[in-house]
């Protein structure tokens, strides 16, 4: 039974990949570029060297954190589409703390505090969407989307208003933080080993929480049948709020790491779209933890490798976006087929 599920899952992933490759090949042939060359550039540009792979990891870290956070929410049946705004709020929270630590003598304290504040900010932001759901009956997708817009407005306001650079009014971001307030890296590394270790630890912890712990069991029960769990004395809304807060906290951590480890300042597009991309990762993973890190790695590699297309082949730079769009569409198509088949009488 389990083997069959795995097989079907692998088949679906293969199908999606096959469709993406086919579509991309067709498109590249249409514009007169060599598909083989494009794919080899994508590959070499993401996994060709340690420097490149470490850049892939820089994308992988926030993407994985967002995806894992989403898993918690999905466990209780919540679509935490507000993840994008939670990344942004996490970045804002982290920036607020780092600004306090500008002249401080112990930067490491402020770095850690920044991450915690980012997580807290984002968790509260997510809690708001959850609260609207359980108390106000507002569907979390609408609440989340609305809050994403508010978060975006908020980050634009702080960058253009209270946190703007001296004598400058620009949407390009806040004054960069001094070197002491960057997450330290090893020589030759372009990725913070701390962030990497933290992400791996969170994956393991999540595996234990979701599949081995009582909380995980309860979350799952809430997701499967919120009415029935009441009979066991569990409060579904409490578990939903808990799940969406954890989801938000992990997104906030991603946002905090974007500030402390990647951009070293707050910018309007600080989330880099990893929240939305994370939703796709989780859907592709069939809402299970095990495939998430690998799918996130594939997406991260695609993100990083695609920069080679305009650089090496003078392909219009928007082609990279087209490839990613093809991924989304193929995935939706395959999932649509899956639902259709499930509904069909021959299934089971």
């Amino acid at each position: 039974m389990r083997m069959q599920g795995l097989k079907r899952h692998l088949f679906e992933i293969g199908l999606i990949l096959g469709m993406v490759v086919l579509f991309t090949t067709l498109l590249l042939s249409l514009v007169g570029a060599s598909p083989l060359e494009a794919f080899s550039h994508l590959f070499a540009g993401s996994l060709g060297s340690w420097a490149k792979f470490s850049r892939v990891l820089n994308v992988w870290i926030p993407l994985t954190l967002c995806s894992i956070g989403l898993l918690y929410a999905f466990r209780t049946g919540l679509w935490n589409i507000g993840v994008e705004g939670q990344v942004v709020m996490g970045a804002i929270g982290a920036t607020a703390v780092l600004r306090l630590g500008l002249e401080a003598s112990h930067p490491l304290f402020y770095l850690l505090a920044a991450l915690l504040m980012g997580m807290a900010f984002a968790a509260l932001w997510a809690l708001f969407a959850g609260w609207l759901k359980v108390r106000g009956g507002v569907h979390e997708i609408f609440a989340g989307l609305g809050l994403n817009f508010v978060a975006m407005g908020f980050v634009l306001w702080v960058i253009f208003g209270p946190w703007k650079r001296d004598g400058i009014a620009s949407m390009s971001g806040t004054q960069p933080f001094p070197l002491e307030l960057w997450f330290p890296s090893l020589p030759g590394w372009r990725v913070s080993p701390f962030a990497l270790g933290l992400t791996l630890a969170i994956i393991l912890l999540t595996a234990w929480v979701l599949y081995r712990s009582r909380i995980g069991l309860n979350l799952d029960a809430v997701g499967r049948n919120p009415r029935a769990v009441r009979l066991f004395g569990l409060s579904p809304s409490r578990y939903m709020l808990l799940a969406i807060m954890v989801s938000g906290a992990l997104a906030g951590l991603a946002g905090g790491l974007q500030v402390t480890g990647i951009y070293h300042r707050l910018i309007p597009s600080i989330s880099s779209g990893y929240g939305y991309l994370g939703l796709l990762v989780v859907m592709l993973a069939n809402f299970r933890l095990a495939p998430v890190p690998f799918i996130a790695l594939f997406f991260a590699a695609l993100n990083v490798g695609s920069i080679q297309l305009p650089m090496m082949m003078q392909l219009d730079s928007s082609l990279a976006g087209v490839i990613q769009g093809a991924c989304v569409l193929s995935a939706l198509l395959v999932f649509g087929l899956r639902t259709l088949r499930k509904r069909g009488p021959s299934d089971e």
């Binding site: 540009g45 420097a51 490149k52 850049r55 820089n58 994308v59 390009s172 372009r190 990647i262 951009y263 910018i267 309007p268 597009s269 600080i270 989330s271 880099s272 779209g273 990893y274 993100n303 990083v304 920069i307 080679q308 305009p310 650089m311 730079s317």
Partner: peptide, 19 residues
């Protein structure tokens, strides 16, 4: 081209310079 975080999410100058 389009070396700015809105057009190329996740890209930073040191990264692309490495390349």
């Amino acid at each position: 081209d389009k070396v700015n975080p809105a057009d190329r999410p996740g890209l930073t100058i040191p990264m692309v310079v490495d390349d």
